Each structure stands twice: as C-alpha cells, then as structure tokens.
Amino acid sequence: MDKYSLLREIADSWVLLAMFIFFLGVIVWAFRPGSRKVHQDTASIPFRNEDRPGVSKAEERQS
C-alpha cells in the first residue's frame, strides 16, 4: 500500500470521526446550561448605549 492511499484511508475514517466529535463538543459547549447569561450579555452589546452614547456600565452603576 502506498503512502497516499494509507493517508487517504485515515483521513476518510478517523479524521472525519475526530472532526464530527469536535463539532458535537462545540455544540454541547455552546448550549451548556451556564452559558445563557453570557450569550444574552453578548447579544445586547449593540443596544447598551442607545440612550447615552459612550457611557460604560461602570458609569451607569455610579449614577
């Protein structure tokens, strides 16, 4: 068996399996129970300074 065929066989089976497991890991990590607050906070970034542009969260807490 030549080197190309061996590497092609490995890529078609084990690398595909590894990529699929990595994909499932990313999905599980993104939808883990504790990530809801982080995702909601990130999603609200464009609307944070809608009333007063340029005011940070720390300055909002002080007022």
Results as ranks from 00 to 15, higher is better:
W29A: 14
M19G: 10
F47S: 12
A11D: 14
L17Q: 08
V28P: 06
L7V: 06
I45W: 10
E60N: 04
S63M: 03
S56I: 02
D41P: 01
P46W: 04
V15S: 12
S13W: 02
P53K: 13
F22V: 14
L16W: 13
D51I: 11
P33L: 02
S13I: 11
H39L: 05
P33A: 06
A58Q: 09
L6Q: 06
D51K: 12
W14K: 15
R8C: 07
L17I: 09
V28T: 08
D41N: 11
L7Y: 11
E9P: 00
Q62E: 07
L24K: 06
V26E: 02
S5D: 09
W14E: 13
P46K: 01
L17G: 05
H39I: 02
D12Q: 08
S56L: 04
Q62Y: 04
I10Q: 12
M19H: 10
F47V: 13
Q62K: 08
A11E: 14
F23D: 05
S5N: 09
S56H: 03
V28H: 13
V55W: 05
E50V: 10
S44Q: 03
F23L: 15
D51N: 15
R32K: 07
F31P: 01
F23T: 05
S63F: 06
D12N: 12
T42K: 13
V28S: 13
I45Y: 08
D41H: 04
F31V: 07
P53W: 12
R36Q: 13
V38K: 10
D51C: 07
R48K: 01
Q40F: 13
F23S: 12
S56Q: 05
L17T: 05
A58P: 01
M19A: 12
W14S: 14
L24T: 02
A43I: 04
F23Y: 10
R32V: 05
S35K: 05
M1E: 06
S44V: 13
Q62C: 03
Y4S: 12
S56A: 10
E9I: 00
N49I: 00
T42D: 11
R8I: 05
L17H: 10
R32T: 08
L24W: 02
F31A: 07
A30H: 08
D41R: 04
I45V: 10
W14P: 02
L24F: 09
L6C: 02
K57F: 14
I45R: 06
D2H: 04
D41Q: 08
W29T: 03
G34W: 01
H39T: 02
A58E: 13
A30V: 08
I27R: 09
T42H: 11
A11P: 06
G54C: 02
L7P: 01
F22N: 07
L17M: 11
I27E: 02
A30L: 12
V15A: 11
P53Q: 08
Y4K: 15
R52G: 13
E59H: 09
G54D: 00
A11I: 08
